[in-house]
Amino acid sequence: MLNALTLVTGVAALLLAAWCGWAAYRDQPTKDWHFIGMAVVSLLAVVQLVVGIVQLARGEKPAQGTTIFVAYLLGAFACVPAAGLMSLAERTRWGSVTAAAGGVVLAVLEVRLYDIWGG
């Protein structure tokens, strides 16, 4: 369950990165549709956070330790919203680049989460 969610979130993050990267390539700031995309990816991260905590509460143990697992879950949860806020403050193509970088960072976090959980 959690691994499937990790995969979906990671792929969604990469798609978001590509989409915002495309906007940057065309010299455009992030628009409403991009923010809806970021909201979808953030929602996935929230679901992942909740599912992860429920798994922990049921007594399952991440391979590399509970503290690290929770820290990465929180990081994954905060990643895209933070980048989204920064792209709101920067209404040029560089805001789009920042949002794209947020997607890439989230994808990296998902890979690490997969290792930490012990997929």
Binding site: A89, T92, W94, A101, V105
Partner: peptide, 18 residues
């Protein structure tokens, strides 16, 4: 300092801080 590419820089520095 955080206009344009500076914003991207702040993002990566923020990630490295965390």
């Amino acid at each position: 300092l955080i206009s344009g590419p500076g914003m991207l820089l702040v993002w990566f520095y923020g990630v490295m801080v965390v």
